[in-house]
Design a protein around this nucleic acid. Structure first.
Lengths: 151, 151
DNA sequence: TCATCAGTATCAAACGTTTGACAGCAAGCT
DNA sequence: AGCTTGCTGTCAAACGTTTGATACTGATGA
């Protein structure tokens, strides 16, 4: 490296990949939140319900790991959703201290309504990109995730 | 659309583009935070310093719009960075109520150190992807952002 | 058997952000 | 001039999350 990199600071920061990534994610998240609000649901609630739906019966701590959030954050969401009757905590058959998480019928219905909204956003994106480039974007994003996690 | 989409809920949610987007952004953000911590700086601080560096002299509210955060969040960050002597607020020449934001020398130095860390992460990603696909990823992400913002 | 260890859940406190409301300043208009 | 409108910055309160600490359970190994 004989090049003279002694710039005061990178001036090319605006067109970095991670910058574009942040902007895109922020925009998507904002739109989701906005569309979900009329249904009385936050994006975090939807994410949690969807996770429980796809893998019923796992514990809060385990769920927290999958979503990359703290166990307390999950507990907070679970408490709220349980209060609404959309989620239910059952005692684990073997480990008494552990609680399995399951969706109630009301929870399934709420998730169904929310997922229509989310799926619509997803559809708008994939239609704009086209099927080929959507798949490519997914691949690239997964590769970035893997690279960064291994760092 | 004669297809029967009456699934109880999308079971394909795990390989949606927006899901991959969330995972990737989360991983990148986590790594940034982790690498920036030893320097006593949060990712939000870095972002703010970088923005002020690239466009000095703009007001807090204007800065908030560029970063897609609330003015209060900016004010909070500015207060902290000003307390550290990395940022300075000057009275606008015409509008007395408005305050221009400028970096101090200490701020420039802190930004330089932080940017080495961030640029290293960026480099790791772009090297892993290759220049061609990095550019493509950037393009796709920008398109997603634009599509979603127009929705 | 008993002791240690890993994993889960819960509590309390600190932190950062959002929301809502307020006051000040400049430009535009009647 | 006087008035409205738009934008700015600040304050206070509510909310959600993280951090740190604690109690309990089941499994592991001496």
């Amino acid at each position: 490296m004989t090049r003279d990199d002694e710039e005061p600071v990178g001036l090319d920061a605006l067109d970095r990949v991670t910058w574009a990534l942040r902007r895109a994610e922020l925009a998507v998240q904002t739109l989701k939140e906005q569309r979900l609000r009329p249904l009385g649901m936050a994006a975090a609630h939807y994410t949690l319900l969807m996770s429980v739906h796809s893998e019923p019966g796992l514990a809060g701590a385990e769920l927290a790991r999958r979503l990359d959030v703290t166990p307390q954050a999950v507990a907070s969401l679970v408490a709220r959703l349980e209060g609404r009757g959309q989620l239910e905590r059952r005692a684990h058959p073997r480990h008494r201290h552990v609680q399995e998480l399951h969706l109630t019928d009301a929870g399934r219905e709420a998730l169904r309504a929310a997922d229509q909204v989310i799926a619509d956003i997803e559809r708008r994106i994939t239609e704009d990109l086209g099927p080929e480039e959507s798949a490519q974007l997914r691949t690239l994003l997964n590769r970035v995730g893997k690279t960064v996690r291994d760092a």
